[in-house]
Computed example of a mutant assay.
Amino acid sequence: MQRLRTPAWIARHVAMVVLVVGFLGLGWWQVTRAAGGNALSFGYAIEWPVFAGFVVFVWWREVRQALRAAPGPSAEDAPPATAGDEPVAPTLAVRRPVRVARVPSTPTEGADDGELAAYNRYLSWLNANPGARPGDYPG
């Protein structure tokens, strides 16, 4: 429960109370306007308490999430793990890069098209000359 008494959490608790009281007050104001003959205010009289309920729902969900979080020092503050007398480096989940094979695909229908073949030669030249500009193409 100590985690819910930090300055950040106190500000959240105060904001929740202010919003709920304000939204319920606005709902009551709309009820009095609706009783005075303003038919549109009946919708707003229902809407403001729904907003207050949403604020309570979000606050309660955040409180539960904070209480479920395991207390303890962060990874930077923790002493290094040891195996016997030697320190063990922390293991990080690093993914290996994906290697993509650069082989041309097998030709399909229309491969005899001269324009397509010229375009493929141009793309092969661009791939072989990564710093070149399209205007440098000799073909």
Rank of each mutant, 00 (worst) to 15 (best):
residue 1 M to S: 09
residue 1 M to P: 09
residue 1 M to Q: 06
residue 2 Q to P: 07
residue 3 R to L: 08
residue 3 R to C: 11
residue 3 R to P: 01
residue 4 L to C: 04
residue 8 A to P: 10
residue 14 V to D: 09
residue 15 A to S: 06
residue 15 A to I: 00
residue 16 M to G: 13
residue 16 M to L: 05
residue 16 M to H: 06
residue 17 V to C: 03
residue 17 V to M: 08
residue 18 V to R: 08
residue 18 V to S: 13
residue 19 L to P: 03
residue 21 V to W: 09
residue 21 V to K: 13
residue 22 G to N: 09
residue 22 G to Q: 15
residue 23 F to T: 07
residue 25 G to H: 11
residue 25 G to P: 14
residue 28 W to P: 00
residue 29 W to E: 13
residue 29 W to P: 06
residue 30 Q to A: 11
residue 30 Q to W: 14
residue 33 R to D: 03
residue 35 A to N: 13
residue 35 A to P: 01
residue 37 G to S: 01
residue 37 G to F: 00
residue 37 G to P: 06
residue 38 N to E: 12
residue 38 N to F: 05
residue 40 L to T: 03
residue 41 S to Q: 09
residue 42 F to M: 11
residue 43 G to N: 06
residue 45 A to F: 08
residue 46 I to L: 14
residue 47 E to I: 05
residue 48 W to M: 09
residue 49 P to E: 02
residue 53 G to C: 10
residue 53 G to Y: 06
residue 54 F to I: 14
residue 55 V to E: 05
residue 56 V to I: 15
residue 57 F to S: 15
residue 58 V to H: 04
residue 60 W to R: 06
residue 63 V to S: 09
residue 64 R to K: 14
residue 67 L to V: 04
residue 67 L to K: 05
residue 68 R to D: 00
residue 70 A to R: 03
residue 70 A to S: 02
residue 71 P to W: 01
residue 72 G to K: 02
residue 72 G to S: 06
residue 73 P to S: 02
residue 74 S to K: 08
residue 74 S to R: 10
residue 74 S to G: 14
residue 75 A to T: 01
residue 75 A to K: 03
residue 76 E to Y: 10
residue 76 E to V: 02
residue 78 A to S: 09
residue 80 P to N: 04
residue 81 A to I: 00
residue 82 T to I: 05
residue 83 A to R: 01
residue 84 G to N: 14
residue 85 D to Y: 11
residue 85 D to N: 10
residue 87 P to H: 07
residue 87 P to Y: 10
residue 87 P to Q: 03
residue 88 V to N: 10
residue 88 V to Y: 04
residue 92 L to F: 10
residue 94 V to E: 15
residue 94 V to D: 07
residue 94 V to H: 07
residue 95 R to Y: 00
residue 95 R to N: 10
residue 98 V to M: 08
residue 98 V to W: 13
residue 98 V to H: 15
residue 98 V to F: 08
residue 100 V to A: 10
residue 100 V to T: 12
residue 102 R to N: 14
residue 103 V to G: 08
residue 104 P to E: 14
residue 106 T to Y: 09
residue 107 P to D: 04
residue 109 E to D: 14
residue 109 E to V: 11
residue 111 A to M: 03
residue 111 A to L: 07
residue 115 E to M: 08
residue 116 L to Y: 05
residue 117 A to Q: 04
residue 118 A to W: 00
residue 120 N to C: 04
residue 122 Y to M: 02
residue 126 L to R: 11
residue 126 L to V: 05
residue 126 L to W: 00
residue 126 L to G: 05
residue 129 N to P: 06
residue 129 N to K: 12
residue 131 G to Q: 07
residue 134 P to L: 08
residue 134 P to I: 04
residue 135 G to M: 03
residue 136 D to N: 08
residue 138 P to H: 03
residue 138 P to Y: 09
residue 138 P to S: 12
residue 139 G to F: 12
residue 139 G to L: 01
residue 139 G to C: 00
